[in-house]
């Protein structure tokens, strides 16, 4: 199913949670709603689900305006941050619950629920209570429950944030494969940029209720439309420096350089800096470097020994330019 949001706004008392958002999601796409907490992503999800009514604007599924369609009639499956598995029901009962609400006969309920449980490799757990499951298993049950009614849209509200790092990566891939297999339009809410980058066809980045950028992960990373997007994506963050020292453009601009775009050269680099800190990570090193009057972070490989206080020569592979308001300036425009 295609989803279209047209000029959606949501006002809570004084605060504008979502401000005039327009968005198209293609059939079978996986779109991440990304942003810091309080950016409006959960509100947006709730409006798509029908749990919240937009103050203005239209929500359109395929060609139908669904603003007035109640949540239960929207054909949506949803997985919640804490899974919201009913603690007094077994796994099977939990999975059957949406079917029970649709007044499907008991035999059919069991049959369908068992089928999806088998598919999600939950077969052996169906008679357990949720409290007896691990986080990852609970997560699978929640997905099974969301999928059992064969929804047209799957909504995932920070489904991985309660899991440990390793499991998160594992389940992230699992969700991605599942989604590919089912070709179900999926919206994934997260505040973790890495998660969004790794899983999505497209990312919608929001801040304080305002649309920032909607693009594929690659495009967003390579061509962030403003300084917020630039610094939100990527870890460590992009270095944002006043232009004075770098380019010759007269305009008051900001230069953005991703840490991995610094290259340490043996000599005759374009820039010279002094190492102020060295952080070793598994596969790479983060160097804190004093560059003119600015402190920057560079991401380099292990092939050389770096010490605090060393002076190094640097080249820059790639840089981004932003105008005084933080908007991206493309190279052609300079």
């Amino acid at each position: 199913m295609k989803i279209r949001l047209e000029n959606i706004s949501k006002q809570y008392h004084e605060t504008l949670a979502v401000d005039d958002l327009t968005l198209h999601i293609g059939d079978g796409e996986l779109v991440s709603l990304l942003g810091p907490s309080g950016c409006g992503k959960s509100t947006t999800l709730a409006m798509i689900a029908g749990l919240e009514m937009p103050t203005s604007g239209r929500v359109i599924f395929d060609n139908d305006i669904v603003n007035d369609v109640p949540a239960e009639s929207r054909d949506i499956g949803m997985v919640f941050q804490n899974y919201a598995l009913y603690p007094h029901m077994t796994v099977l009962e939990n999975i059957m619950f949406p079917l029970k609400m649709r007044k499907i006969s008991k035999e059919q309920r069991i049959e369908k629920a068992m089928a999806i449980a088998r598919w999600m490799q939950l077969e052996d757990l169906v008679n357990r209570k949720p409290s007896k499951l691990s986080g990852g298993q609970q997560q699978r049950v929640a997905i099974a429950r969301a999928l059992v009614k064969e929804p047209k849209i799957l909504l995932l509200d920070e489904p991985l944030s309660n899991l440990d790092a390793r499991l998160r990566i594992e389940l992230r891939d699992e969700i991605r494969q599942l989604q590919k297999k089912l070709k179900i339009t999926t919206i994934f809410v997260t505040h973790d940029q890495e998660e969004a980058m790794s899983i999505s066809d497209k990312i919608l980045l929001m801040d304080k209720g305002v649309f920032q950028q909607y693009a594929s992960p690659k495009e967003m990373y390579e061509k962030p439309v403003n300084t917020f997007v630039a610094s939100f994506l990527g870890n460590p963050q992009m270095n944002l420096l006043p232009n004075d020292d770098f380019m010759d453009t007269k305009a008051k601009t900001t230069v953005g350089i991703r840490p991995e775009d610094f290259v340490v050269v043996p000599s005759k680099g374009s820039y010279q800096g002094q190492i102020t800190s060295v952080q070793t990570l598994g596969k790479e090193l983060y160097l804190g470097i004093q560059l003119h009057n600015e402190k920057v972070t560079a991401c380099v490989s292990w092939d050389h020994r770096y010490d605090v206080g060393d002076t190094i020569e640097l080249d820059i592979k790639k840089h981004h330019l932003f105008d005084a308001k933080g908007k991206r300036i493309d190279y052609e425009e300079i």
Binding site: L51, S73, G77, F80, A84, H88, P98
Partner: peptide, 26 residues
């Protein structure tokens, strides 16, 4: 948690059903 309420509503559970099948047992 309000997530239970949302989850149940998405599944087509009415307020009254939610009260008796989810809230009360919990």
């Amino acid at each position: 948690p309000v997530a239970y309420y949302k989850a149940a509503r998405l599944d087509g559970c009415s307020d009254f059903q939610y009260l008796w099948t989810i809230l009360v047992p919990m």
